[in-house]
């Protein structure tokens, strides 16, 4: 089966003007590789600053003007050029954003989710999409400030599924929701996947991601450090990269141990493995050259000694 989305060695950097006329290239994403299959929820997990949202923006082709993208991005097996992305977004590739702040405060819900398209069939589509998520036709005449947090998310999903998307990018769709509402929201994503769409679920909440994801991609400092089936997170042993293992140990049910240190940002990247300074199993080789993204059992990991480091 062709993956619906493939990223290979994707990098996104920004040009900023430094002192005087010097230009500084700020890396946002450095080396990101992942695949998302149709019918599956692929969770992209990382702390803030790891480049999660940039990935979403790159897929949708809405990176800011001063950015530069390199590497390969394939949608349904063919390169996803900015022009192709522009033609597909809103129809085949859709975004489910964070919350009500993403709705125009001065526009009613109905016209907003119809996105400027008119006609009786669009109206029916719109009503059906709202109905699917338990929202009555009266929702169409509400303004965003009249929606509750949960309603706003459902409106955003309804807006996304209106035209039967093939790739749903959900960028941190849960903050501000209580556990039950978040669970309900995630079940909607799972349902979309079951109907054949690929879902890219971007979040910082590993625990939540594991409740719906088929596959987990872990980001650290703009790199993918591990891609693993969700079952890999059942035990620490199922994980190959020490950062994923650290994330596993940081989950409440696994001991709540937090790894000391901070994720490097922007230009402060160390040579060799970005995680090496915090890695408990660091060896001299880790501080040199490029670390390859190698195949592991059922996934991939960016580590010279996958699965070897395990501290307890």
């Amino acid at each position: 089966m062709t993956p619906i989305l493939t990223a290979e060695s994707l990098s996104v950097s920004f040009t900023r003007y430094g002192r005087g006329l010097s230009r500084v290239e700020l890396p946002g994403i450095r080396d990101l590789s992942l695949t998302a299959d149709p019918g599956q929820v692929t969770a992209v997990v990382g702390s803030s600053g790891s480049g999660k949202s940039l990935l979403a923006h790159a897929v949708l082709g809405i990176l800011p003007r001063n950015s530069r993208m390199e590497g390969t991005l394939l949608y349904d097996g063919a390169p996803l050029s900015p022009r192709r992305a522009a033609a597909l977004r809103g129809r085949e590739i859709v975004l489910v954003p964070q919350g009500a702040g993403c709705l125009d405060p001065m526009m009613q819900v109905g016209p907003q989710i119809r996105r400027g398209r008119r006609g009786p069939e669009v109206r029916t589509q719109c009503r059906q999409a709202l109905e699917r998520y338990g929202l009555g036709p009266e929702t169409e005449t509400l303004y965003p400030f009249q929606l509750s947090g949960g309603m706003a998310r459902r409106v955003l999903i309804a807006s996304a599924v209106m035209e039967g998307p093939r790739l749903v990018v959900a960028d941190e769709p849960t903050p501000g929701l209580d556990a039950r509402a978040a669970g309900r929201l995630l079940s909607h994503f799972r349902e979309l996947a079951d109907q054949g769409a690929g879902v890219l679920f971007i979040t910082h909440d590993l625990e939540l991601a594991l409740t719906v994801a088929h596959k987990v991609v872990v980001l650290y400092a703009g790199q993918t450090v591990e891609e693993v089936p969700a079952e890999g997170f059942r035990t620490e042993k199922g994980l190959a990269h020490p950062y994923s293992q650290a994330l596993w140990r940081a989950m409440p049910r696994n001991g709540f141990q937090v790894l000391p240190g901070l994720q490097p940002e922007g230009l402060d990247l160390p040579e060799g493995c970005a995680f090496a300074p915090r890695c408990p199993g660091r060896r001299p080789e880790c501080g040199r050259g490029q670390i390859p993204y190698i195949e592991t059992d059922g996934g991939r990991a960016r580590c010279l000694f996958p699965g070897e480091v395990s501290v307890s």
């Binding site: 033609a87 993403c102 709705l103 405060p105």
Partner: peptide
């Protein structure tokens, strides 16, 4: 954010539809 979202969803005439209104 709503402008970025509108762009992400492939909306056209964002200036007229959203910005002017606000």
């Amino acid at each position: 954010d709503y402008i970025l979202y509108a762009r992400a969803m492939g909306e056209r005439h964002i200036l007229l539809r959203h910005v002017v209104r606000n």
